[in-house]
Design a binder for these strands. Structure first.
Length: 901
RNA sequence: GGGCGCGUAGCUCAGUGGAAGAGCACCCGGCUUACAACCGGGGGGUCGCUGGUUCGAACCCAGCCGUGCCCACCA
């Protein structure tokens, strides 16, 4: 008799999720204990911006991390998943500045101190919303160890490392050309600049005297014979090409290649700069590409990085003609114009003076934009702090090269090397107020003092601190050890550093991963910050398109959690997560995941209604039916595969394997095959010993398989599995239940082969029934032939029960014959119901397939080289296939004949 | 300009030397009391193109076509 079950027929995630999460936290499931003697496993979360909310990219990133951590926890590791947020310099400052703007205020109205106070206030009130959202997703982070990149401890870490870099000469201040955002009004590092191919206008301008002018080379990039380019005039003139005409106001030279014969005679002379009357030298520098344009370059050291370098080499003056907002400061008619207003104005003026040679032409070239606000970057000469990345980057590259750190997938290591091996110095100062202020004081007599965390800054007349703050990625780079207590020697640091794995999207390989490597190795005496970098892709829509608001294809994970459940959301993401590749998702797929959760729910519900048991040892081998041995064998195989895929970060395959095992093997076959066994015991309620024992064994095996399956799925879909597992076992939570291990003694290939044969028989009969249009309830008399040969003699009643075949009674007459692989034949008596045309079509299809197979096998075997060179097992396999196909053909032909055609 | 991928069923993707696979979508039949968020059955692909290597190629090699991404200081 099926027992009553407390479970409703459908899984309702909402209430379960909240209850389970509270239970996990209140019972300390996520709390790490540094003093334990368990093996450590640690992941530090990529700290989301404190301004952020949980988007689908976080959901993917967190699902992967949570899955890894939960599995390790079940495996008995001392696990720590450390949560926290990033102060996100520009982003946060912008948020608060916008808020101020609604009050008609700017940050300057408040002043630095008040403004920073205001940001902290904002953070206290509305920052970190994402942390609450992480609970919805089920993140098993240790909430007792939450950190913030500007909290006291981390600030101390920042000051400590800065001081060390300064003392080692690796942090330095210099006047350089940096990337400047004229809207954000701050310097940016190279990676905060995004390049795009924009269309500009290449203008050729003649500098100097008319008669000395040299025309641009026809075809622009062809080098023309030098002799023809020479002009004999006494005046000096030269033609340069530029896309940024306004910068000519800041030119301090014209450069040509030293070996360029066209210009050799001009080097060392001066030309007059149009519109200004200034005279500037013509210099020779190897940087100039003689094949580009005219082979002569205007040099603007204060507004172009290359020109700056040239200027340094030739001791040219740096003439700044733009202010921090990109407005012309040079005296003259253009003063006060924006750079993009000045450009056409200057081209027009040059044209008026007859200085524009030939026509201007459209020119597509890479233009840098601010990654935050998309404003076009203005290279700007200014005094900034830099990190000399040379030795740090080399160490960061070596740690991967020598295998101490593994990048997964390995192909992305190439990108990593390309970057760390060609890194420029890192500009770390930002002209912002929100962030770690640079701990350097300048004295009245030009002194520069870097003040460590435990030192007092110099006092007295004329001393002042550097106004700038550090790049937000500076503190992020310390995250793997600063969060564990560095620079103190804490138990956490001793236990959990190096961290085990760093999970993040490949898009911040450069921003973050490489820098953590540099600083981790530097601060921790050459110890890497993590052993493995597991990179995942970007979440995309079901057509592989990037998610964007303008496309309207953005998925809100909280919406999915609300409608389909956190587990369904997680499963959908994990199911698409192949290492390093992008993850397509769609609402339909999330529905499918929800359905899967519901399937598990109902399978467990069935088990509970039928008294499945989970306690005590499994019965001895002799008690198992072939079906029991099959499912237990499959379980071992699945457990092994899942472990293998987990270790390779192949989450998609973990999901796929468990999905099919759960749905196909457990639900569609094992449970269906268990029903008659359980029903037989029910029929013999008065106590048929054999049927009762078989049912008890089935209950125990079903309970065991579900118990193990729920454990295997728990890291991916923690909520539903925990609810079901605790219902099944009566225990509180599966969170720390031992992870399943493979028991090889349960591997049983014969049982697997037998059940495959059973499935073939059943499927074939079902196909026949379907083709014949037989009602599900309609019973047909049949004779099953050849079952013993495939080990199915014991299971004939089971098969009959599954496909509703009666024993061949008196008057049985075979009217159809199903030839099934392995020599099994099912003869059916379908008098009165058979559809001759349908049956003929079915058989002819089978005949065609058999004939094709035979032809294929023969062709192979008749190739002499095949027999000679192919391995014996391959040849044998083909012979087997041929024999089977020939047998099939014979049976099908006989059936067709019997059909009376 | 340099580098790295990818092209397999309508869609998204597995498969990387020996019989073309999955999920979803589609078609047919079913409320068979765990589940209609389900069950059973089915159709559908010269594996981008062209050559080559091999007894054998979706898989290895070359070229081409298409497509995506990353890096980049050619004015």
């Amino acid at each position: 008799m099926p027992a009553e079950t407390p479970l409703p027929a459908q899984y309702a995630p909402g209430e379960v999720e909240q209850r389970r999460y509270d239970l996990w936290v209140s019972t300390g499931q996520f709390t790490a204990i540094p003093a334990s003697d368990r093996q450590p496993y640690c992941i530090v979360i990529p700290p989301p911006n404190v301004t952020g909310s949980l988007h689908v990219g976080h959901a993917l990133d967190h699902t992967i991390q949570d899955t890894l951590v939960r599995r390790r926890r079940m495996q008995g590791f001392e696990t720590l998943w450390l949560p926290g947020t990033d102060h996100a310099g520009i982003a946060t400052q912008n948020v608060v500045e916008r808020q101020l703007a609604t009050e008609g205020l700017s940050r300057h109205d408040l002043g630095r101190e008040k403004f920073v106070e205001r940001v902290w206030q904002w953070k206290a009130e509305s920052g970190g919303a994402i942390l609450g959202q992480m609970r919805r997703l089920g993140d098993s982070v240790d909430w007792g160890r939450e950190r913030f990149t500007m909290d006291e401890g981390l600030s101390r870490a920042v000051l400590t490392i800065f001081k060390r870099l300064f003392d080692d000469g690796l942090a330095y201040r210099a006047e350089r050309i940096i990337n400047w955002c004229p809207r954000c009004l701050t310097a940016l590092s190279d990676i905060e600049v995004e390049h795009s191919d924009d269309e500009g206008e290449l203008v050729s301008i003649r500098y100097g005297d008319d008669d000395g002018a040299i025309s641009p080379v026809p075809g622009a990039s062809q080098r023309a014979p030098a002799s023809e380019e020479r002009t004999g005039g006494a005046g000096i003139g030269i033609v340069v090409a530029t896309t940024r005409a306004e910068t000519m106001l800041g030119d301090t030279a014209v450069a040509v290649h030293p070996d360029d014969d066209r210009y050799r005679h001009l080097v060392g002379k001066e030309v007059e700069l149009p519109l200004t009357g200034r005279r500037i030298p013509i210099i020779a520098d190897a940087h100039v590409d003689p094949t580009f344009g005219t082979g002569a370059v205007k040099v603007t050291p204060a507004h172009d990085p290359n020109d700056f370098e040239i200027g340094q080499r030739h001791d040219l003056p740096n003439l700044t003609i733009l202010d921090e907002r990109g407005v012309i400061t040079a005296n003259g008619p253009y003063q006060g114009l924006d750079r993009f207003e000045a450009r056409p104005a200057i081209v027009a003026a040059l044209r008026e003076h007859g200085r524009v040679v030939a026509e201007t032409r459209p020119y597509v070239h890479a233009v840098g934009h601010c990654s935050r606000c998309k404003t076009i970057i203005e290279p700007r000469l200014s005094l900034q702090w830099f990190v000399n990345t040379g030795p740090l980057a080399r160490a960061a590259g070596d740690a991967v090269r020598d295998g101490r750190v593994r990048i997964e997938p390995a192909e992305l290591a190439k990108r990593y090397f390309a970057w760390v091996d060609n890194m420029h110095d890192w500009c770390i100062s930002r002209q912002l107020w929100w962030g770690h202020r640079i701990p350097v004081w300048y004295g009245p007599n030009g002194e520069t003092v870097c003040v460590g965390p435990d030192e007092q800054p110099p006092t007295g007349e004329g001393w002042h601190q550097d106004e700038d703050v550090l790049d937000t990625w500076f503190s992020s780079a310390l995250w793997p050890f600063s969060t564990l207590g560095w620079p103190d020697e804490t138990p956490e640091l001793a236990k959990f550093y190096p961290t085990s794995v760093l999970v993040t999207g490949y898009d911040i390989l450069f921003f973050w991963v490489a820098r953590m490597m540099m600083f981790g190795l530097y601060a921790m005496g050459g110890q890497q910050p993590f052993d493995v970098v597991a990179l995942h892709g970007m979440v995309r829509d079901q057509h592989g398109k990037k998610m964007s608001k303008s496309f309207g294809n953005v998925v809100d994970p909280l919406d999915w959690i609300e409608r389909f459940g956190a587990d369904a959301t997680r499963f959908t993401l994990a199911r698409g997560a192949n290492p390093g590749s992008d993850v397509p998702v769609s609402e339909e797929w999330c529905q499918g995941s929800r359905n899967f959760c519901n399937k598990l729910w109902n399978a467990t519900r069935f088990a509970l209604m039928n008294g499945a048991t989970v306690s005590g040892r499994l019965p001895g081998r002799k008690q198992f039916s072939t079906i029991d041995r099959w499912i237990l064998s499959r379980l071992q195989q699945v457990t092994a595969e899942v472990d293998e895929y987990f270790d390779a970060f192949e989450f998609a395959k973990v999901c796929d394997t468990l999905y099919h095992f759960a749905w196909d093997d457990v639900c569609d076959w094992y449970v269906e095959l268990a029903k008659p066994v359980l029903a037989a015991a029910g029929d013999a309620a008065t106590g048929d010993g054999a049927a009762g024992d078989a049912a008890a064994t089935t209950r125990r095996v079903l309970g065991h398989v579900l118990d193990q399956l729920l454990r295997l799925l728990h890291p991916i879909i923690p909520f539903v599995t925990d609810e079901l597992w605790s219902g099944l076992t009566g225990k509180k939570t599966v969170a720390r239940a031992p992870w399943p291990t493979v028991n090889k003694s349960y591997v049983d290939e014969r049982a697997e082969a037998t059940v495959v044969a059973l499935q073939q028989v059943v499927t074939e009969v079902r196909r026949f029934r379907s083709d014949q249009g037989l009602r599900p309830g309609q019973r047909v008399a049949a004779r099953l032939i050849g079952l013993p040969a495939v080990g199915l003699d014991q299971h004939e009643p089971l098969i009959r029960s599954l496909v509703r075949l009666d024993e061949p009674g008196t008057g049985f007459a075979a009217t159809a014959s199903l030839a099934i692989a392995g020599g099994v034949d099912v003869e059916l008596d379908t008098r009165g119901v058979i559809d001759v045309a349908a049956e003929r079509a079915r058989l002819e299809k089978d005949r065609g397939a058999a004939e094709k197979e035979i032809a294929g096998c023969r062709a192979k075997l008749d190739t002499p080289a095949f027999a000679d060179k192919a391995p014996a097992d391959v040849v044998a396999k083909v012979r087997e296939r041929l024999a089977a196909a020939e047998a099939d053909l014979a049976r099908v032909s006989a059936s067709l004949a019997a059909l009376g055609v």
